[in-house]
Protein backbone atom coordinates (compact mmCIF):
# COMPACT_ATOMS: atom_id res chain seq x y z
CA UNK A 1 0.00 0.00 0.00
CA UNK A 2 1.17 3.58 -0.66
CA UNK A 3 3.00 5.26 2.14
CA UNK A 4 0.35 7.99 2.48
CA UNK A 5 -2.27 5.37 3.25
CA UNK A 6 -0.05 3.62 5.76
CA UNK A 7 0.55 6.92 7.49
CA UNK A 8 -3.16 7.72 7.41
CA UNK A 9 -4.06 4.43 9.03
CA UNK A 10 -1.35 4.78 11.66
CA UNK A 11 -2.32 8.32 12.60
CA UNK A 12 -6.06 7.75 12.61
CA UNK A 13 -5.72 4.69 14.80
CA UNK A 14 -3.43 6.51 17.16
CA UNK A 15 -5.78 9.46 17.42
CA UNK A 16 -8.85 7.29 17.92
CA UNK A 17 -7.08 5.28 20.53
CA UNK A 18 -6.12 8.41 22.41
CA UNK A 19 -9.56 10.04 22.22
CA UNK A 20 -11.36 6.76 22.84
CA UNK A 21 -9.35 6.17 25.98
CA UNK A 22 -10.23 9.66 27.13
CA UNK A 23 -13.94 8.92 26.47
CA UNK A 24 -13.56 5.69 28.46
CA UNK A 25 -13.09 7.71 31.64
CA UNK A 26 -16.24 9.77 31.03
CA UNK A 27 -18.16 6.99 32.74
CA UNK A 28 -16.79 8.32 36.02
CA UNK A 29 -18.10 11.77 35.13
CA UNK A 30 -21.56 10.29 34.48
CA UNK A 31 -21.34 8.37 37.71
CA UNK A 32 -20.30 11.49 39.62
CA UNK A 33 -23.02 13.70 38.21
CA UNK A 34 -25.75 11.18 38.96
CA UNK A 35 -24.46 10.45 42.45
CA UNK A 36 -24.35 14.17 43.09
CA UNK A 37 -27.91 14.35 41.79
CA UNK A 38 -29.24 11.76 44.24
CA UNK A 39 -27.18 13.28 47.04
CA UNK A 40 -28.33 16.85 46.40
CA UNK A 41 -31.93 15.71 46.28
CA UNK A 42 -31.63 14.27 49.75
CA UNK A 43 -29.69 17.14 51.30
CA UNK A 44 -30.77 20.36 49.56
CA UNK A 45 -32.65 21.44 46.45
CA UNK A 46 -32.31 19.20 43.41
CA UNK A 47 -30.30 20.83 40.63
CA UNK A 48 -31.48 21.93 37.24
CA UNK A 49 -28.50 20.70 35.37
CA UNK A 50 -27.70 17.15 36.44
CA UNK A 51 -29.89 15.03 34.18
CA UNK A 52 -29.09 17.03 31.07
CA UNK A 53 -25.38 17.07 31.87
CA UNK A 54 -25.44 13.31 32.28
CA UNK A 55 -27.16 13.02 28.91
CA UNK A 56 -24.49 15.18 27.27
CA UNK A 57 -21.81 13.00 28.83
CA UNK A 58 -23.54 9.87 27.60
CA UNK A 59 -23.58 10.97 23.97
CA UNK A 60 -19.99 12.16 24.22
CA UNK A 61 -19.10 8.77 25.71
CA UNK A 62 -20.43 6.58 22.96
CA UNK A 63 -19.75 8.89 20.02
CA UNK A 64 -16.19 9.82 20.96
CA UNK A 65 -15.55 6.21 21.94
CA UNK A 66 -17.01 4.86 18.69
CA UNK A 67 -13.85 4.87 16.62
CA UNK A 68 -11.82 3.23 19.33
CA UNK A 69 -14.46 0.54 19.88
CA UNK A 70 -14.44 -0.24 16.16
CA UNK A 71 -10.67 -0.50 16.31
CA UNK A 72 -11.02 -3.01 19.16
CA UNK A 73 -13.51 -5.03 17.11
CA UNK A 74 -16.34 -4.62 19.58
CA UNK A 75 -19.12 -4.15 17.04
CA UNK A 76 -21.02 -7.40 16.57
CA UNK A 77 -21.63 -8.97 13.22
CA UNK A 78 -24.04 -11.66 12.23
CA UNK A 79 -21.44 -14.31 11.61
CA UNK A 80 -23.48 -17.25 10.39
CA UNK A 81 -21.60 -17.28 7.08
CA UNK A 82 -18.83 -14.89 8.01
CA UNK A 83 -17.05 -17.30 10.35
CA UNK A 84 -16.99 -20.05 7.76
CA UNK A 85 -15.00 -17.92 5.30
CA UNK A 86 -11.22 -17.76 4.99
CA UNK A 87 -9.69 -14.58 6.43
CA UNK A 88 -8.98 -13.28 2.96
CA UNK A 89 -12.56 -13.79 1.79
CA UNK A 90 -13.72 -11.97 4.88
CA UNK A 91 -11.49 -9.02 4.10
CA UNK A 92 -12.70 -9.00 0.52
CA UNK A 93 -16.37 -8.97 1.50
CA UNK A 94 -15.68 -6.48 4.27
CA UNK A 95 -13.90 -4.11 1.93
CA UNK A 96 -17.06 -3.94 -0.16
CA UNK A 97 -19.71 -3.92 2.54
CA UNK A 98 -17.90 -1.39 4.69
CA UNK A 99 -18.83 1.09 1.96
CA UNK A 100 -22.44 0.82 3.14
CA UNK A 101 -21.33 1.64 6.64
CA UNK A 102 -19.34 4.57 5.31
CA UNK A 103 -22.40 5.80 3.43
CA UNK A 104 -24.37 5.79 6.68
CA UNK A 105 -21.61 7.60 8.54
CA UNK A 106 -21.44 10.23 5.79
CA UNK A 107 -25.15 10.94 6.21
CA UNK A 108 -24.74 11.07 9.98
CA UNK A 109 -21.88 13.52 9.52
CA UNK A 110 -23.87 15.62 7.09
CA UNK A 111 -26.81 15.78 9.51
CA UNK A 112 -24.47 16.54 12.38
CA UNK A 113 -22.77 19.32 10.45
CA UNK A 114 -26.08 20.85 9.41
CA UNK A 115 -27.49 20.62 12.92
CA UNK A 116 -24.36 22.16 14.42
CA UNK A 117 -24.30 24.97 11.86
CA UNK A 118 -27.89 25.77 12.77
CA UNK A 119 -27.10 25.70 16.49
CA UNK A 120 -24.27 28.17 15.99
CA UNK A 121 -26.11 30.45 13.56
CA UNK A 122 -29.21 30.82 15.72
CA UNK A 123 -27.54 30.46 19.10
CA UNK A 124 -29.80 27.46 19.77
CA UNK A 125 -30.41 26.70 23.42
CA UNK A 126 -31.67 23.47 24.89
CA UNK A 127 -35.40 23.22 25.47
CA UNK A 128 -35.17 23.36 29.25
CA UNK A 129 -35.10 25.88 32.06
CA UNK A 130 -31.36 25.39 32.42
CA UNK A 131 -31.17 26.16 28.68
CA UNK A 132 -27.50 25.57 27.90
CA UNK A 133 -26.26 26.39 24.42
CA UNK A 134 -26.56 23.36 22.17
CA UNK A 135 -23.58 23.95 19.92
CA UNK A 136 -20.89 22.54 22.25
CA UNK A 137 -22.52 19.15 22.56
CA UNK A 138 -23.37 19.10 18.86
CA UNK A 139 -19.76 19.90 17.98
CA UNK A 140 -18.64 16.99 20.16
CA UNK A 141 -21.22 14.68 18.61
CA UNK A 142 -20.30 15.62 15.07
CA UNK A 143 -16.63 15.24 15.88
CA UNK A 144 -17.37 11.76 17.26
CA UNK A 145 -19.10 10.81 14.02
CA UNK A 146 -16.14 12.16 12.08
CA UNK A 147 -13.78 10.00 14.15
CA UNK A 148 -15.91 6.97 13.39
CA UNK A 149 -15.84 7.80 9.69
CA UNK A 150 -12.05 8.19 9.72
CA UNK A 151 -11.78 4.86 11.49
CA UNK A 152 -14.10 3.19 8.98
CA UNK A 153 -11.89 4.45 6.15
CA UNK A 154 -8.83 3.14 7.95
CA UNK A 155 -10.62 -0.20 8.30
CA UNK A 156 -11.35 -0.19 4.59
CA UNK A 157 -7.67 0.38 3.82
CA UNK A 158 -6.67 -2.40 6.16
CA UNK A 159 -9.14 -4.77 4.50
CA UNK A 160 -7.86 -3.90 1.04
CA UNK A 161 -4.32 -4.46 2.23
CA UNK A 162 -5.32 -7.83 3.66
CA UNK A 163 -6.89 -8.83 0.35
CA UNK A 164 -3.60 -7.97 -1.35
CA UNK A 165 -1.81 -10.04 1.23
CA UNK A 166 -0.20 -7.11 2.96
CA UNK A 167 -0.37 -5.93 6.51
CA UNK A 168 -0.77 -2.37 7.67
Amino acid sequence: MPKAIRLYVAYVEKMNRFIGRFAMYLIFAMLGVLLYSSFSKAVFLPSLWTLETAQFLMVAYYLLGGGYSMQLGDHVRMDLLYTTWKPRTRSLVDSITVLFLIFYLCLLLYGGYSSTAYAIEYGEKSYSAWAPYMWPVKVVMTFGVLLMLLQALATLFKDIAAVRGEEI
Binding site: R77, L81, V93, T97, L101, Y104
Partner: peptide, 16 residues
Protein backbone atom coordinates in the same frame (compact mmCIF):
# COMPACT_ATOMS: atom_id res chain seq x y z
CA UNK B 1 -26.52 -8.56 7.84
CA UNK B 2 -25.77 -11.90 6.21
CA UNK B 3 -22.62 -10.47 4.63
CA UNK B 4 -21.24 -10.17 8.15
CA UNK B 5 -20.87 -6.40 8.09
CA UNK B 6 -21.17 -4.73 11.49
CA UNK B 7 -24.80 -4.76 12.57
CA UNK B 8 -25.11 -1.02 13.17
CA UNK B 9 -23.72 -0.30 9.70
CA UNK B 10 -26.19 -2.63 8.00
CA UNK B 11 -29.19 -1.19 9.81
CA UNK B 12 -28.00 2.41 9.54
CA UNK B 13 -27.38 2.12 5.83
CA UNK B 14 -30.80 0.70 5.02
CA UNK B 15 -32.53 3.26 7.22
CA UNK B 16 -30.71 6.34 5.96
Amino acid sequence: LLTGQRVFGAIGFVAS
